[in-house]
């Protein structure tokens, strides 16, 4: 396998806009015993309590100002669900993000589907 090393990726047409790619992503399951379904640049998931999990990155971000895009749901089940950054004095950090999953009634939920991508400086 070969590696392509570049600093920026620009569109070849339409003015050469730059692309940003996710620096980390993960999909996980909190139902039963927590599990990582698949991930990139994530070294571990920690089950911190009902619906709450910590993702630790394989390699740190340059700062904690990264953007997180996440989704949560119950596979093969009904009802809407929500995912968010779990509040804390020093969360997120450059190496970890604590996330919580909820039902619409604002109760923490161990959901079968959690997914997130992280965009930021590394």
């Amino acid at each position: 396998m070969s590696t392509i090393k570049v600093n920026d990726i620009e569109e070849a047409t339409s003015g050469g806009g730059k692309f940003a790619v996710a620096r980390a992503w993960a999909r996980w399951n909190m139902s039963g015993t927590a599990a990582i379904v698949d991930s990139f640049n994530v070294s571990s998931l920690t089950d911190l309590g009902v619906g709450i999990s910590r993702k630790t990155f394989s390699n740190n971000f340059a700062n904690a100002d990264y953007c997180i895009v996440g989704q949560a749901g119950r596979l093969n089940d009904s009802g809407n669900r929500i995912i968010g950054v779990h509040g804390g004095q020093s969360n997120p950090t450059t190496s970890t993000t604590d996330m919580a999953m909820f039902s619409l009634a604002s109760a923490y939920n161990d959901l079968t589907y959690g997914a997130a991508s992280w965009f930021g400086d590394t």
Binding site: T33, A34, T46, D47, G49
Partner: peptide
Amino acid sequence: DEPTKVLVPSDRWMKE
């Protein structure tokens, strides 16, 4: 006082 936590290693990281 918090529940015991469970760390799940990433398969991709373990391979690395």
